[in-house]
Design a protein around this nucleic acid. Structure first.
Lengths: 330, 330
DNA sequence: ATATTTTTTGCTACCGGTAGCAAACGTGCA
DNA sequence: TGCACGTTTGCTACCGGTAGCAAAAAATAT
């Protein structure tokens, strides 16, 4: 059975289609009587307005494209939950786009644009900045935002957790606990904008103790990749030269690193090797890990993103302060 | 700057708008010469077809609504990754809808319908079957599918992992290992259709040994809820009466239960209490858990779902065989 | 009762495409 | 040169709504 249109309802109710539309438009000029008549007819025909047609006419879809490329990070799930819930609370709908080898940012943005989304959110995805500027995307297209990562791109504001403050807080904590030989594990992509945490951490130790950071990098942002990177490092370093604390760019890496340190090298955490993560993903709280990590203020970030999308707040980069979560691992 | 339309390009190229459309329609009747002329003009104006308008005219959006209500389950993330990637590979786009207290299934389905999605996928969500039949949703609406959960609903096929086979396999394994006092932890919602795993497990032990299952249920499907349920049980049972193996309805519950058993009650897993999960979520593989669990054939399930959506396969319930993943916990 | 104002209803034009028919064009053949 | 035929192009009508003006109806003032 084909869907009923406003025209069908109009005939059923004996009015014009514009009256039907008015019955479904809050605040429109229509008498109670005709409204009731129309709604009754609509009920009978099971009519509900076609939002596609409405979007075409009003030039607004209430759809927001959310680009994600890092499904290995367990932290993405609760974050995504908040984001979708908050968008829905504002009457917006989420178009989830998976960025991978077969479907890159340019593809995704072009497609989202053609679908007339109201905004595009790059949710913690890794990309070269040139990608976005090269292709003269954006000119005339929907506004773009970078969430949970920083952005140097002209006209693309970022909503993120203040990396400088976060790293300083973590560094101070580690210093106070007496760690002196720091290491840092990054996810593979050494993109200019993704270097923040590493650079700040490196700078911190240099300034504080004049100590050089031991750097390692994983293939991807996943526990497996973190495990492999830790394995590579630990197997080739002499115990006496070993770092005493490892900061990982995110929790996924930290879980892998901790697994390997404990089960493959018999190291006690934190006594032989302390480990710090970033994100406060769910397993970090479990006694199986007890990971000291840094929690991003996801509520504030989501709220800020939505305020910008809805133009309730100026569209400019904002940073929020997160919170150090101290557990057993460091 | 406003987006260019086919009309604009037509004027720029000196042809009619229909010729422009043809240049963008694969296989349309158009000379190479005019096609080149049009594409050049389109390039100059940065034109790309408006998919909203196309959808309205063709009555097909290539959008699929995916309803999720269980963001606490870490297994959802990789599953969602596969699902979105596969949909995208077929030119479909994912509308991710978060089902929660503020936004229920009826809301979601109605809204997705109004947005003219090509299909609705209930991805492992919990709902009362009446919900869908009550509201005469579906009549005339987009086809619906239940993914990763079974369905008794008329006209709504399910794509899932065969629970009978899975539970039998798990049961046999536990029996062989010598466990004799089984327990089962369910997520709270005791919905008729969600009882499959529990009922089968119960039946298995009754048939095999004439033993009664100890049942407990968590508030939700999350590690915290699983922890609480385990805590409740372990704190009120005498050690000599304790079950020797606990099967959890999913891995999230199992992680919580294992945490509590080990760190709060000092139990060794599996010696004092064996634990089995379901889903093979990422942390299950980590030595920190080493959880024996059951892996759903997600690739097959996703493929089957998409084949049904695209009508390449008959739209009827299918079950796939998963695989028992034996690790240390049982 | 009539004139005036306000509310309600209907209308045309439009959003940016698609479908499919009809006219225009080009080509091959008699 | 003329005609038939296939290809290319342009056209009308349509998808299902919205915007905002004009006419009709109802409410108020004189």
């Amino acid at each position: 059975m084909k869907r009923a249109t406003a025209q069908n309802v109009a005939m059923e109710a004996g009015v014009s289609k514009w009256t039907v539309i008015r019955a479904f438009t809050p605040g429109a000029s229509i008498t109670e009587a005709s409204k009731a008549k129309v709604l009754e007819a609509a009920e009978r025909l099971n009519y509900r307005p076609n939002l596609l047609a409405r979007s075409l006419a009003t030039n607004s879809t209430h759809q927001v494209a959310v680009l994600v490329d890092d499904f290995a990070n367990p932290h993405k799930l609760p974050f995504l939950e908040k984001l979708t819930a908050s968008l829905q609370a504002e009457g917006l709908v989420t178009m989830l786009i998976n960025i991978n080898q077969h479907y890159n940012h340019v593809h995704a943005i072009l497609n989202a644009d053609q679908r007339q989304v109201d905004a595009i959110v790059l949710f913690g995805t890794a990309f070269r900045d040139e990608m976005l500027t090269d292709h003269k995307l954006g000119r005339g297209g929907p506004p773009m935002f970078v969430l949970a990562r920083d952005s140097q791109i002209e006209g693309v504001p970022a909503i993120s957790c203040d990396a400088v403050v976060a790293i300083a807080e973590i560094g101070e904590h580690l210093l106070k606990r007496g760690y002196r030989r720091p290491g840092f594990m990054a996810g593979a992509r050494t993109l200019s904008t993704a270097l923040g945490r590493r650079r700040n951490f490196k700078e911190f130790w240099r300034t504080a103790l004049g100590v050089e950071l031991v750097e390692m990098s994983a293939e991807r942002y996943s526990a497996e990749a973190g495990a492999q990177a830790a394995r590579d490092y630990l197997s080739k370093i002499a115990p006496e030269d070993r770092i005493d604390v490892l900061m990982c760019e995110n929790d996924a890496l930290a879980f892998g690193a901790m697994d390997v340190a404990r089960s493959e090298f018999g190291l006690r955490v934190p006594d032989d090797l302390a480990i710090v993560g970033f994100d406060n993903a769910a397993p970090a709280a479990s006694p199986a890990y007890g990971l000291t990590t840094y929690e991003q203020p996801t509520d504030q970030m989501v709220k800020a993103a939505i305020d910008m999308i809805l133009e309730r707040a100026p569209r400019e980069t904002v940073n929020f302060k997160g919170e150090l979560v101290v557990r057993d691992s460091a």
